[in-house]
Simulated scan of single mutants.
Amino acid sequence: MKRALITGITGQDGMYLGELLDSKGYEVYGLVRGQNNPKVATVREVLPNAKLLFGDLTDLGSLLRVIETADPEEVYNLGAISFVAHSWENAGMTTDVTGKGVLNMLEATRIHAGSDPSSIRFYQASSSEMFGKVQEVPQRESTLLWPRSPYGVAKVFGHYMTINYRESYGMHASSGILFNHESPRRGIEFVTRKVTTAVARIALGKQDGLKMGNLDASRDWGYAGDYVDAMWRMLQQPEADDYVIATGKTHTIRDLLDVAFHRIGIDDWSSRVTYDKQYERPAEVDLLIGDASKAKEVLGWEPSVDFRELIEMMVDSDLAEQETLD
């Protein structure tokens, strides 16, 4: 039975990855920050077989204790402060967790691996936000990185540190440059879930409308369940490498609103959505679209859920959830 350690197991990706690994017969360990973490109950419900260990990505000592207990063959570093808008308000904390936390996890893994650094396979959750002010369309593994947020900058640090540990120590360390990926488990603070939740509440008469920022920003949106499969595939390769994971199709926030409102029978949502400057980013990322040709060729990976199916899945889930709430 293989053992895997997942940091960020309380997040959307962590839970989907935990389910995938459990289905493949892994013994799953999850790193949780803080014993009073409110998401622990959800993780225990979704992943009853997972063993939860408490530690902090900013504390190397705690990571060494966790990795010694788990003794994993695979480490998936998904833990981060991942809400981009929050990173401008908390740039220091974002840097410590999302950037330097990667260094701490790499170092803990290297130390635990001892004389054979490649004996533990390491996955780093890189992000399309690293491309920021895009220098090439579509974006691929070789595209120049130009981050436009403290979150993006922190992700670039972690990405290059992963490459550095691979090249310096011979670690089997891979990065997945994942473009936006969503699901019913997405946090309510993210724009897709903000929209699908509001639409569900509007359908049920619990809300009149919603406030939005830039409706013309374009993203390459996929399904989180598909994307964690790509993570696993990377660590099964004989050689570590970096891969863009994306659908290769881009949609605007307007497209998102079109699909979500259509699902509840509203085709003209213009009177329901109002502009609010507070939701604009200080520096916007206008167009992200990924080229996942390498992942298709090497990993045999392709997305299985398209944009419309994804948003409809999320609206349906939020309708079911909102119907149970007062």
Score class of each variant (00 low, 15 high):
123 Y>M: 14
132 G>W: 12
257 L>H: 07
168 S>Q: 14
133 K>Y: 15
190 F>C: 04
60 L>K: 02
306 D>Y: 01
323 E>R: 15
121 R>W: 06
258 D>T: 14
175 S>G: 00
279 Y>C: 03
259 V>E: 03
43 V>P: 00
27 E>N: 03
238 P>R: 11
64 L>M: 14
147 P>D: 03
289 I>N: 07
206 K>Y: 02
273 V>L: 11
170 G>K: 09
93 M>S: 11
89 E>M: 04
160 Y>N: 12
271 S>M: 08
250 T>S: 15
208 D>I: 09
189 E>K: 15
243 Y>Q: 04
178 L>A: 08
45 E>Q: 14
177 I>S: 09
161 M>F: 08
264 I>M: 02
155 K>N: 04
46 V>C: 03
299 L>M: 04
49 N>W: 01
89 E>K: 15
269 W>Q: 10
237 Q>V: 07
9 I>C: 04
186 R>P: 00
36 N>D: 15
133 K>W: 15
30 G>L: 13
30 G>W: 15
220 D>F: 06
28 V>D: 02
17 L>C: 01
140 R>T: 09
108 A>P: 08
192 T>K: 09
162 T>A: 06
104 N>F: 14
161 M>D: 05
87 S>C: 06
197 T>M: 13
75 V>M: 01
267 D>C: 04
250 T>K: 12
167 E>W: 06
149 S>P: 06
224 A>L: 02
29 Y>D: 04
279 Y>V: 00
33 R>S: 08
40 V>R: 01
315 V>I: 05
128 S>G: 15
139 Q>S: 13
265 G>Q: 07
154 A>N: 06
296 K>T: 14
102 V>C: 08
109 T>V: 01
286 D>C: 05
259 V>D: 01
256 L>Q: 07
16 Y>W: 11
55 G>F: 08
110 R>C: 01
286 D>M: 14
250 T>D: 07
207 Q>P: 03
83 F>P: 00
111 I>N: 02
66 V>M: 00
83 F>R: 11
309 E>D: 09
173 A>Q: 06
182 E>S: 13
135 Q>I: 05
50 A>M: 00
252 T>C: 07
168 S>H: 07
292 A>C: 08
260 A>V: 10
154 A>V: 04
265 G>R: 09
284 E>N: 09
207 Q>I: 06
188 I>S: 12
241 D>F: 06
73 E>M: 11
16 Y>V: 03
252 T>Q: 14
244 V>L: 05
290 G>L: 08
234 M>Y: 00
90 N>Y: 15
97 V>T: 07
162 T>E: 02
174 S>W: 02
307 F>W: 08
81 I>E: 08
127 S>Q: 06
3 R>Q: 14
137 V>N: 10
94 T>G: 02
202 I>Q: 10
222 G>E: 00
203 A>G: 03
276 D>L: 10
280 E>I: 09
152 G>A: 08
83 F>E: 07
141 E>W: 09
326 D>G: 12
166 R>S: 01
314 M>I: 12
47 L>H: 06
